[in-house]
Design a binder for these strands. Structure first.
Lengths: 173, 173
DNA sequence: AAAAAACAAAGAAAATAATTCTGCGTAAAA
DNA sequence: TTTTACGCAGAATTATTTTCTTTGTTTTTT
């Protein structure tokens, strides 16, 4: 028995109940391994016709299941060896500190976290010297910044944006 | 005057001095915006012949400047709305804790950080309930874990793996 | 339960794109 | 200056994507 997609093409939009069957899931797993392989190659691995695979991929793109495709550049080759995490305490009245941090190019991530009521930043820089410069000249200059706590990374064991697609996924919303 | 690549094709390997000129940099910027556009489209934007653009891309792939291409999946659609950062204190004698954390599928990042002599983990889970379960059943089960401190994310302002390619980049090693 | 509608997939054909090859011009090295 | 290496354009070849049509299956409706 084959489970097929249900009720997802009526309105192909965010905010509608959607389901992913095993076939689409397998396609995503293949693309997660190597996103820039040709469609025919995905089809070969799927043992399906290229047209059918393409149809599914396009559909997932339209549905916003696939958000896009990214080049992964080697940070080593761009003088961006050093990763650092910075926790920033901001006085309660400043509501746009998050956007200000996000505007700094060396800042790859900006999260507002519960617990300490602070921002968690992830930076990628050349070395600790540049880190210091950005802290001094950019981060502490943002309006309302009270204190920062920096942790430099000595070694990275894992760093991926991959979502675990282990089990069958039923997606709502 | 056009600056061309120098001394990079003698030995195309990691560990060799390399340079990136403005042309290659511009290609990378285009690919960083949308990695799955066809080569001819890149060529159009570059106002160059497709063969020349392809040559450069292939070269950067060989040199390890381009590490690969990734699908970006929408975490919302896969029950992975919740991001959390976990700081883990590990007793000094356990040297393979990092690998153990990395093996957990919900853990997207594992860094060993200076300062507190601890591991910084980034998790992506469905909700706080799942977060609790993974902390209890997986993270604290790793040999040598002494303490954990979790910060759940309330809002993400920025989250990208993009490297800032602002200025001209000269790359060594 | 039967008919109608909706869907997914295969296959063929047409349109596009990738790849290879050749030749030319320019820049660095001898 | 001559040699050598390199990068790029353009044409030819191969490969891939995309569209369209057909068919079988599942779901919904009557």
């Amino acid at each position: 028995m084959i489970i097929t997609n249900v009720a997802c093409s009526v309105v192909e939009q965010a905010g509608v109940n959607t389901m992913i069957d095993e076939t689409s899931l397998k396609i995503l797993k293949i693309l997660q391994e190597k996103a820039r392989i040709p469609n025919v190659e995905v089809a070969r691995q799927m043992e399906m016709a290229p047209s059918a695979v393409l149809e599914r991929i396009r559909k997932m793109e339209r549905q916003g299941i696939i958000d896009g495709y990214e080049v992964r550049l080697n940070p080593d080759r761009f003088n961006r060896r050093q990763v650092a995490f910075v926790q920033v305490q901001v006085s309660a009245d400043n509501t746009c500190a998050g956007e200000a941090f996000a505007a700094i190019p060396e800042v790859q991530e900006v999260h507002y976290v519960a617990g300490d009521d602070s921002y968690q930043l992830k930076l990628r820089v050349a070395d600790t010297e540049e880190l210091g410069r950005i802290l001094r000249e950019k981060i502490t200059q943002v309006n309302g910044v009270a204190a920062t706590r920096t942790a430099t990374v000595l070694h990275t064991y894992k760093e991926t944006a991959k979502l675990p697609l282990l089990d069958t996924v039923h997606i709502k919303e």
